[in-house]
């Protein structure tokens, strides 16, 4: 089977019988954590389980996650997406994985004991001051996947960790903000809220894989943009 490199760093594609598979090279060969499929030394990134994979399926321009990056991940959950980001950034990178629910954070601990580039933190992303002293360096990429009503607000609060010129991957869920409004209207409000501090490079709806979700890819600019 022949894998091909893609425009995204650390991610490979495999075309097989009209199916397109997203692959990453396994950092811990022979070991898998979520009973995902493996092809040789590669692990298959399922777009139905991860919003990042869904966005890659939608052909976004770039994931902006590279080798040796420092990443802050809010809303880590079981660590499915994290394990693949950990494949991409390799040993010298570092992911700060923030999760609020203790029961799922346990699984995150199991993952981080096997992979040296994950640092789990049990904290509420609403209160960045509580874990401020645990994140030592400014991060290159901020990834947020939190289904809360004030998700845009949480993102803005956590921008202090991101260095200038860093990138934001923000997965917004319309249904957790307002179930009665049209998703497109909710997304417009989010754009209004975050465009004061961020330059939005791309926004992509994850429709066949996730309902009413949208991934915003933004860049933190040196000076806040004026309206």
């Amino acid at each position: 089977m022949k894998t091909e490199t893609s425009k995204y760093s650390g991610i490979y594609f495999l075309h097989k019988k009209n199916n397109k598979y997203i692959l990453t090279k396994n950092l811990t060969p022979g070991k898998t954590f979520f009973s995902e499929k493996t092809i040789g030394s590669y692990r298959v990134f399922n777009p139905l389980h991860s919003k990042l994979a869904a966005a890659i399926m939608q052909d976004i321009k770039d994931t902006y996650i590279k080798k040796n990056d420092k990443i802050l991940y809010l809303g880590a959950a079981h660590g499915y997406t994290i394990s693949f980001i950990s494949d991409i950034i390799q040993e010298k990178g570092l992911i700060y994985a923030v999760e609020f629910a203790p029961s799922v954070a346990k699984e995150l601990i199991f993952l981080s004991e096997q992979r040296s580039n994950i640092l789990p933190i049990l904290a509420d992303a609403n209160q960045p001051e509580k874990y401020k002293n645990r994140i030592s360096k400014e991060v290159n990429v901020l990834y947020q996947d939190i289904s809360q009503k004030n998700q845009a607000e949480i993102l803005l609060k956590n921008l202090i960790f991101l260095k200038n010129g860093g990138y934001v991957l923000f997965s917004a869920k319309a249904r957790s903000i307002d179930t009665t409004k049209e998703p497109s209207k909710v997304f417009k409000e989010i754009v209004l809220a975050i465009s004061r501090e961020l330059e939005i490079l791309e926004s992509v709806r994850l429709e066949p894989f996730e309902r009413d979700h949208c991934l915003f890819i933004c860049k933190k600019v040196a000076k806040p943009l004026k309206k």
Partner: peptide, 19 residues
């Protein structure tokens, strides 16, 4: 930064959080 220490702290946090 000492990663082991941080993981140990998170483990403690988890232990406290589950009542």
């Amino acid at each position: 930064m000492n990663r082991e220490k941080e993981i140990a702290k998170t483990k403690q946090d988890i232990e406290k959080a589950i009542t």
